[in-house]
Design a protein around this nucleic acid. Structure first.
Lengths: 341, 341
DNA sequence: GCTCGGACCCGAAGCGCTTTGGACGCCCCG
DNA sequence: CGGGGCGTCCAAAGCGCTTCGGGTCCGAGC
């Protein structure tokens, strides 16, 4: 069923049918109703490709998600982020096309996406420090919003990010207030911008109290359970082990918890743990009683915000980019307590 | 830059340029080279929409992923599944478009996808028992492959699935051989087909040894950490608690492990745990020494297989559907041991 | 009574590509 | 020497939609 057939069926021109369907004023309410009813009854939906060709808009957003080449690792937050973004797309009638690339040939990917003309805008995932994609996309002229930020990129661009430095500073201060002095940081890969910011928040808090960060208590790896476990196990075996851990994801925190248990210690009493918490749907940190004290910021919400922002940007292009800085909530759970003495 | 401009630039017809780019024989090698070089230099890529309009093929695959409405939960395996599928799409030049729906209006979604004409085929996620989507898609006439199977659907269809019944039977037998008699099953939602099959595998193994499944030791919920924890905690508090757990995901298993620890018991000595393991990239079950004894079957591999199958189906439509039954590997980790006496 | 402006509708061009149905040389063979 | 065949290339139609530039009809205004 296509427009032509529908028009013939109704005995009116394609033009009128098209206008009726798209809400143009120059068609009487009577015929509009007839058209809409017929479309419904005959299960007609306009061909998206043809429509895109004619209008020049693709009605689709591209998400390019980099897969860490070393570890073939998919960031576990994508599912929830995209679920949030989808809500916005659904409401606006946009589709979502996904392309995965190993971090190397991403630029190529963007260029293709643009010249193939099947997206109107892009969400950039996993920004690194000095991320080259940002100047590149600006030159391409395709609207985009970054999930996160890229330090040391001075061009303006739109982003949605959580205040990583601030939340890790707060968490560190919280632990310091509890008397902890040996605080470990189990971070994500330091090439990632968020990890960089988190470390700075952590170090700032320490410095402000006249403490120096101990390199032996800081790691930055892919945020997996085994990595969290291994890092924590190693640190707990030190001569002067940490009494508290700060982790960058619930998954790492679970590994840390395992190491704590295996060392014969109890989390929340002997060793405290605070984690960043993306509020993933399948890793809820205890809806009732949180198992981890956490800095919570819903990545699903971030997805929604980023998508909304991008759609706005597409609808009305503007010079000055939009930005949104989300604050994480510090949620007290069972994993923290005063430093043992 | 479009075909017309490229053709003008080269001083040849659009026809010839098109043919040169698409590898048709009726163009001399000399001109083909000229065309390809120019395309490269001018960064030309054909407009996908126009190409789709002309050829009738969208060069895109749709993934419709249902979001559990009750729990707003995104299945954590999607990331890895899609990463696997993407490898196949990338190689074949296909795009991937994603749509998320709450399970209710999925049918509507498929119909739209088809009539909008922007996918050539569909991967169906999260099949339920008696899943209505399968007959529906067959009638739609759009090629599709199901990730999983749907019991009590007698029409033929293509699928890729892991042998859930068999692997849970094996796991149960393994525990029985170790002397366990009180074996709990922490399953996924029983509306999901895989959960249904797993329970049957489990029950079959028990029955074969003359044991009856105890309803108090079986649960079926969304597979989250808190759910695994709560279920295990409740069961361990029973008068006659289980000495072993069978869980449907590593995430549930982590919750179970927490409950075991909190009950003052040790996993692998006092209580055994075997889990299904999708081999997710961010939840690797110990590459070296697995923390859980597990039935491992890479969901990423499943994605690759399903995508390959679908592409084949699109290329050469056939009557008899293709199917692939993957066998999970039983991997011995630190979480199992003989039943305590 | 005639014109003029809305309200409503239509024909046809055009979006960027593929593909059908030739056209034009050139060589080879009878 | 003429014609068939092959190797190259081209013009134009068509994919399904939007939209520009009118057309027609009717009631209001002079």
């Amino acid at each position: 069923m296509n427009l032509k057939q529908l028009a013939q069926h109704l005995g009116i021109s394609q033009t009128t049918v098209s206008r009726a369907l798209n809400g143009y004023p120059e068609v009487s309410e009577a015929t509009r109703k007839r058209v809409l009813d017929a479309a419904q009854a005959l299960d007609y939906a306009p061909n998206a490709r043809a429509k895109g060709l004619a209008t020049g808009r693709a009605m689709a957003i591209g998400h390019v998600i980099p897969i860490s080449t070393q570890h073939e690792m998919v960031n576990p937050v994508f599912g929830d982020f995209i679920a949030g973004a989808s809500e916005a797309y659904l409401a606006a009638g946009y589709d979502l096309t996904l392309s995965m690339t190993n971090d190397d040939d991403e630029a190529d990917n963007y260029r293709r996406l643009k010249s193939k003309g099947n997206v109107d805008g892009i969400i950039v995932h996993g920004p690194k420090m000095r991320d080259g994609r940002i100047p590149f996309l600006r030159r391409l002229g395709l609207p985009f919003v970054v999930h996160g930020r890229a330090s040391e990129v001075d061009e303006p661009y739109s982003w949605v990010d959580v205040n990583n430095a601030r939340s890790f500073r707060r968490a560190t201060e919280f632990l310091l207030d509890f008397g902890h002095r040996r605080i470990a940081l189990v971070n994500g890969l330091e090439t990632m911008d968020f990890a960089f910011r988190r470390r700075h928040g952590y170090e700032d808090a320490l410095t402000a109290r006249g403490l120096a960060a101990d390199p032996a208590l800081m790691t930055g790896q892919e945020m997996t359970e085994p990595n969290g476990y291994a890092d924590a196990a190693r640190m707990l075996a030190l001569e002067n082990p940490p009494t508290a851990f700060l982790t960058s994801s619930v998954i790492s925190a679970i590994g840390v918890r395992r190491a704590i248990h295996e060392a014969g210690l109890e989390m929340g009493r002997d060793v405290s743990v605070i984690t960043h918490d993306d509020d993933l749907s399948y890793l809820r940190n205890g809806p009732d009683l949180p198992m981890f004290t956490a800095l919570r910021s819903s990545v699903r919400e971030a997805g929604r915000r980023a998508a909304d922002m991008l759609l706005r940007l597409i609808a009305e292009p503007r010079e000055t980019p939009e930005t949104a800085l989300l604050e994480a909530q510090l949620i007290i759970g069972a994993s923290t307590g005063p430093a043992p003495r």
